[in-house]
Structures are given as structure tokens and as C-alpha cells.
């Protein structure tokens, strides 16, 4: 239980309704009523996924399914929303803990499993939208292929090309029907390029922004 919860289930003396009204007071009018009832799935809880998740919670998306089988490592902290005292913890558990500190009323389904072709449908199937947040290109391809084959009518927002520094204006969202691809689509992560926090977070924020637009309006402008 959250430490701010008192015996009446109140937070800082506020009921859940009062807490939500004030928390989301500055969000676009009418958006919370829609987003609160949506479910977004995030495949991967690393540099992209941890940033996407926080952005979606703050946008008012109340139901998240987050899957990742990795543990938090020190080398993740350069770009991922974890803390040094969470090193060694499963990423999905650590992320859930952090997200509930932002808003204790959201519902997070944390899945500590490796995603493969055979479990994409089962793990993410009830989501309205899937956000691809893996690191490795093979995993990205597997996820996009599996999702598009299983749910041709649902959107998937993916990321490709976010390594290196600078070139912020090269990060764009390209729309291919119900696949939205965020990134510069050219810079591969390797020992020469590396990954830096703002460029990864920009791409994650762009993914979250596209997801929110799709959840609110049912589509996305190109």
C-alpha cells in the first residue's frame, strides 16, 4: 500500500476522485474520460518502454500491460527510468513500482516473460494498441509481424533509428496504415553510435504522443 494512503483509502487527504481531478486538471479537456478506459500494451521496459509508460500514465491512460524479462542493470540508468537501488530487480516490477508512485490508481499488468511469436496474442491481445519498445531489431520485426498478422485492425506504434547524438529534427513518425514507425529510420545502435538519454526519450515521447492521438481519435495524421 502506498505510504500516503491513510486508513480511509485517501491520498494526501483526497479521495480518488479528488486526486484524479487535480492530477489531470491541466490535461486537454475531455481527454481523461476517453483515455481512462483504454488499455495500452508496451513490449519492452527499457529506454523506450519505461519512458513511454510514464508518458501514458501522465496522459491518463489508466490500463497498461508491460512485458519484459530483463533485470535492471547499472548500464540501463543512462537512459531508462529506474533508480540505482532497483538494480537486479525485474524491470517490469521496478517500473510498476515507479509508475504507482506517479499515480497509485492506475492498473499495471507486469509480465516478466520473454515475448515470442506464440505469446504475442495471449499477452497483449486485450490491448487497444501496442507500443513496440524493444532494443534489438530482430525482436522489433518479430513483434510487428506477429501483431499485424493477429490484429490487422489494431494499431502498433514502433521505433527504429534513435541511436547517436543530435539530429533531433530527423526523428519523425511515419504512418504505414496501422503501423506507425517513430525514429530517424537510419541510425542503428552499435558501439560507434551509442544511445543517449534525450534522443531515446524523444523517440519514446513521440511513440506515446502517437498512441494518445490514436486512442483519442481512432487514427493519426501523417
Amino acid at each position: 500500500m502506498n505510504k500516503f494512503n491513510d486508513l480511509n483509502g485517501k491520498i494526501n487527504g483526497m479521495t480518488q476522485c479528488e486526486f484524479e481531478a487535480e492530477f489531470y486538471r491541466r490535461n486537454p479537456p475531455g481527454s481523461l474520460a476517453v483515455l481512462k478506459n483504454k488499455t495500452a500494451a508496451i513490449a519492452g521496459a527499457g529506454g523506450l518502454g519505461s519512458n513511454v509508460a510514464a508518458a501514458l500514465i501522465r496522459s491518463g491512460v489508466y490500463n497498461l500491460i508491460i512485458a519484459d524479462f530483463d533485470m535492471v542493470e547499472l548500464s540501463n540508468l543512462n537512459r531508462q527510468q529506474f533508480f540505482y537501488d532497483q538494480i537486479g530487480a525485474p524491470k517490469v516490477s521496478a517500473l510498476k513500482e515507479n509508475l504507482l508512485k506517479i499515480n497509485p490508481f492506475v492498473r499495471i499488468t507486469a509480465v516478466a516473460e520473454k515475448i515470442c511469436e506464440s505469446n504475442v496474442k495471449e499477452i497483449f491481445g486485450r490491448a487497444d494498441i501496442l507500443i513496440e519498445a524493444f532494443d534489438r531489431a530482430e525482436m522489433k520485426a518479430m513483434l510487428i509481424e506477429s501483431w499485424c498478422a493477429a490484429f490487422p485492425d489494431k494499431f502498433i506504434v514502433a521505433a527504429s533509428g534513435l541511436a547517436g547524438t543530435g539530429r533531433g529534427n530527423a526523428i519523425k513518425a511515419a504512418v504505414y496504415g496501422r503501423l506507425v514507425l517513430c525514429g530517424d529510420q537510419t541510425t542503428e545502435a552499435n558501439e560507434t553510435t551509442g544511445l543517449i538519454a534525450p534522443r531515446v526519450a524523444m523517440t519514446a515521447a513521440l511513440e506515446a504522443n502517437c498512441a494518445v492521438e490514436i486512442l483519442l481519435s481512432g487514427g493519426i495524421g501523417n
Partner: peptide, 9 residues
């Protein structure tokens, strides 16, 4: 559309 996926995340 042919999209080439790149690692990084």
C-alpha cells in the same frame, strides 16, 4: 513501403 528495422531502445 519497405521498412528496415534498426536496433536501439
Amino acid at each position: 513501403s519497405v521498412v528496415h528495422l534498426m536496433s536501439g531502445g
